[in-house]
Design a protein around this nucleic acid. Structure first.
Length: 577
DNA sequence: GCCGTTTTCGGCCCGACTGTTTTCAGTCG
């Protein structure tokens, strides 16, 4: 059982307890515990073996959860979970995915109608068995029928680039409305999450009705879920949900803070306010004794400041350590920014599967303000991409030498390769050639289905090769389409730390690999991160901002990101021996 | 189930909207 497995167990426990109508705070305690364990930079097993640091010293882990961790490590299972699973019909979990059906209603339906599947629920609705139940009616019966169809599609989340395109369209449509004085997209989109489950729009206006009419006329709208005085929700293509909230100008900051979340961050903010004798809601801050109308809500800065905090970048608002950082006297870390990126260390050209030449990539990179790049075409094993053998590679490097000579120091192209880690373990390019490169990327493209031990050994071995500087897209995941390899990332991060190697954060919105948790763990272990685009064309260089967002979410500092280092510093690191 | 600059017990963020209700529970974010 590794940390991710244990976190998974606690998450499932939380789901099951919630379904059974357990105390909401108990449920939250399990979720908090799961999150805390997922983000640890040591394994629970290791901590348990070390008597000097009890598990209970971790915030969110008390005696009960610590005990359960011990049981899981020792036996690999948890009787409580197995018992709960046995007592809970699987259909209950499925039912709660239907919009409008929560734990209470799902439970009531399942018990009363003795349901075993969603199909039986559909039949019950069609036979009008639901409308006569207490607390239900004809409308909720229809809502369940509609919801059954939606639940099948709506589990989908949008990748950040897809969300960005939807936001662009929504913004264009709403900006036509003159009643809108201010417009901001909030929620997980503003926090820069790799995927978003819905889009949240915040608007300042004196005429909420006019604003809602405008959203109602959005060309992509499929249906309206709810519409009240200040709040409205619609569905667009693929049943994706869009929420709108209209507030007055004096509440814009408080509403933006509230609507940006995360839920955990908001709970932390409001708890803090409470301890200070105040109450925070989306309109502003009031005194708990009601002696003052809502204030300090015009801007987010104002609100945070009243709570003794500096403004917190949205990417950090996940209920981790951001409140401690923002407390008076402390400072928010010097987070990585797009402007601080000086180079791109992973890109392809027409020599392999890219669609632009080296010259075109250089021009595009310089236009973006970069100071140096690495050309990293595929090695020969990737035959589909016309990967380079040793001979072609050496020839390409000669060409790069000539190009660098003409650039006269104004810009630098690094000789490199994205060298495959072959299925059997060795690298696809011989060491004598790799040794002549400025920078070597190793990556896995084949044999992704190998066992945990096999694929971990391949990557760990590659990191130990003195010619290799970094492993690219270390888990191989493709968001929404391909799960990560079975790789043991704890071992990979430990090896990278031990051998002074880097790990990649691949900026492609399809990958964003490493994920947030692994970035947190890698940076805690002192492993430098390279944020690269893996561009296959000049347009591909633009995705860098997705990588930077992901890195900011993990709290990465400029100094921890290779791409911010001036060329000389970077080359010294490459020559570390 | 967790936690403590009042607390080892009694709190735990806060409000909008809907549908089924005659004053509110459930759901959602």
């Amino acid at each position: 059982m590794n940390n991710a497995d244990i976190a998974q167990v606690f998450e499932e426990l939380a789901d099951l307890l919630e379904l059974r109508g357990e105390n909401a705070f108990r449920v939250r305690a399990y979720r908090t515990g799961a999150k805390a364990i997922l983000e640890l930079n040591r394994s629970v097993k290791e901590i348990l073996a070390d008597a000097t640091t009890p598990l209970q010293s971790i915030a969110g882990i008390g005696d009960t959860l610590a005990q359960k961790c011990q049981t899981l490590i020792e036996t690999g299972k948890l009787p409580q979970l197995e018992e709960l699973r046995a007592q809970t019909p699987p259909v209950l979990i499925q039912m709660t995915r239907i919009p409008g059906l929560g734990a209470k209603k799902a439970m009531a339906l399942q018990k009363e109608l003795n349901l075993q599947s969603l199909e039986e629920l559909r039949q019950a609705c069609e036979q009008h068995k639901v409308r006569d139940m207490k607390g239900f009616g004809a409308k909720s019966e229809q809502q369940i029928l509609d919801g059954l169809a939606i639940a099948e599609q709506a589990s989908m989340r949008l990748r950040i680039d897809q969300a960005e395109r939807l936001v662009f369209r929504l913004r264009g449509h709403l900006e036509l409305c003159t009643a809108i004085k201010q417009l901001e997209f909030a929620g997980s989109y503003r926090r820069g999450k790799e995927t978003v489950g819905d889009v949240d729009i915040l608007v300042v206006s004196d005429s909420p009705t006019v604003v809602m009419d405008q959203l109602e006329s959005f060309p992509g709208r499929l249906s309206t879920i709810a519409r009240g005085d200040t709040k409205m929700s619609i569905r667009v293509e693929a049943q994706f949900q869009v929420d709108l909230r209209v507030v007055a100008a004096e509440s814009f900051g408080a509403a933006l803070q509230y609507f940006t979340g995360s839920k955990e961050h908001n709970v932390a903010i409001r708890s803090r306010a409470r301890k200070m004798g105040m109450s925070v809601n989306e309109y502003g801050i009031t005194n708990l004794d009601g002696s003052q109308p809502p204030m300090y809500g015009t801007t987010e800065q104002e609100l945070y400041s009243k709570l003794g905090l500096s403004w917190i970048p949205p990417e950090l608002r996940e209920g981790r350590h951001e409140i401690e950082w923002a407390e008076s006297g402390a400072s928010i870390p010097d987070l990585i920014t797009v402007e601080a990126i000086l180079c791109d260390l992973h890109m392809h050209t027409t020599e392999s599967d890219g669609s632009n030449t080296i010259g075109e990539m250089i021009a595009a990179a310089r236009k973006r303000g970069l100071k140096y790049i690495a050309i990293t075409d595929h090695s020969k094993r990737v035959s589909m991409a016309r990967g380079l053998n040793e001979e072609r590679l050496l020839k390409q490097w000669e060409e790069i030498d000539q190009i660098n000579a003409t650039l006269e120091g104004a810009f630098r192209v690094l000789k490199s390769v994205e060298c495959d880690i072959l299925e059997a373990g060795p690298l696809d390019i011989v060491d004598e050639v790799l040794a002549q490169a400025d920078w070597v990327i190793a990556s896995v493209h084949y044999g992704q289905k190998q066992s945990r031990d096999e694929i971990t050994k391949r990557i760990v071995d590659a990191l130990q090769n003195p010619n290799v500087d970094i492993v690219a897209h270390p888990t191989g995941r493709l968001l929404g389409t391909r799960p990560p390899y079975e790789v043991d990332m704890e071992a990979v991060i430990a090896t990278a730390a031990q051998y002074s190697k880097a790990l990649e954060l691949n900026s492609s919105p399809y990958r964003l690999d490493l994920c947030e948790q692994h970035l947190i763990q890698a940076s805690a272990a002192g492993v430098p991160i390279a944020i690269n685009t893996d561009a296959h064309s000049i347009d591909g260089l633009e995705v860098i901002h997705y990588g930077v967002l992901q890195a900011r979410r993990a709290g990465l500092l400029k100094s921890q990101v290779l791409n911010t280092w001036p060329l000389e510093q970077f080359l010294r690191w490459c020559d570390r021996g």
